[in-house]
Amino acid sequence: MAVHAPAARPKAARRPEPRPRRRTGGYWVFLLPSAVLFAAVILVPFLMNVGISFTRWQGIGDPRWLGLDNYTRLFADARFWTSFRNNAALIVAMAIVPTIIGLVLAATLFDYVGKKFGPRTASVLRAAYYLPQVLPVAIAGIVWGWIMHPRFGVLNEFLALFGMEPRGWLGDPDWALPSVMLIMVWFQIGYPVVIFMAGLQRVDPALYEAAEMDGASWARRFWHITIPQIRPEIYVVLLTCTIAALKVFGPIFVLTRGGPGGATLVPSYFSYQNFFEKANVGYGAAIATVLTLVIIVVTVLFLRVQDGEDGDS
């Protein structure tokens, strides 16, 4: 998975025209290659997917029109609800927990370590937290699949040193989801740390100095200066990480294939199974369509809340 760098909101739209247009026109030619490619790779496939979701189709032969049957079946399917419940758990592990930990780490590194031990110490620590982020997420899954292996895994060996029982971890229905969550926290933490530390760079140091002179504790500075000042970054991180969590596929494929018994099933893997393992293409398309809707709704909600906040301040 790639966590995309946070995008700038399109400022171009709000910006007034700089000056009366001259020599404009004719620029649309530059959009042509993209227009063709976007139609072929995104628009048409997306519409086809929506269309397929109203049919029964095995990938060969003619699709049979079902109307909304796939969707009514989907909403009655316990596995579907399980997959979204697991998704919620992964949002906690990939967006909420890393944001909270990242805030504390970034603020400590910036406001404490950077000042008391020098910026080099802070940037070395930051690099250590960020390192997991450079891995392809599937590779991160391979690393942890090996560490948590029930037979030869390091984790069991390590816990045995403290006299703890070996576990199946990813193969244990009770432990699989918490294990995946733990792995994703490890994987994600570096991203908010880096973004928040960059955000803190533009906070006016006078704010911190004034607070310190007033005798404000670290906790109070954190709560009253750090968090409000980097609010835009917090939104960006929460939004991009939530979307990444909703789309998560690689680690699940590599670590558990949704198992055991659906304990780590997520919508993207659920749709993959229906597309390519069960040849229930219509049903898979319905899952993918619902996932798309969820992602769009989440994005719009986030942007709404963010705009509302912007208006207040």
Binding site: H4, A7, P10, A12, A13, E17, R21, T24, G26, Y27, W28, F30, L31, F38, V41, I42, V44, P45, F46, M48, N49, I52, G59, I243, L246, K247, F249, P267, S268, S271, Y272, F275, V281, G284, A285, I287, A288, T289, L291, T292, I295, I296, T299
Partner: peptide, 29 residues
């Protein structure tokens, strides 16, 4: 730079394309 007409909407299209899950494209592709 060219500020072609309808650019806000075109940008929205790119933004939506950027958030679409690949699962919703994979089978047709």
């Amino acid at each position: 730079i060219g500020r072609v007409r309808g650019r806000t909407w075109i940008l929205v299209v790119f933004l939506v394309a950027n958030t679409l899950p690949q699962e919703a494209l994979v089978y047709p592709l």
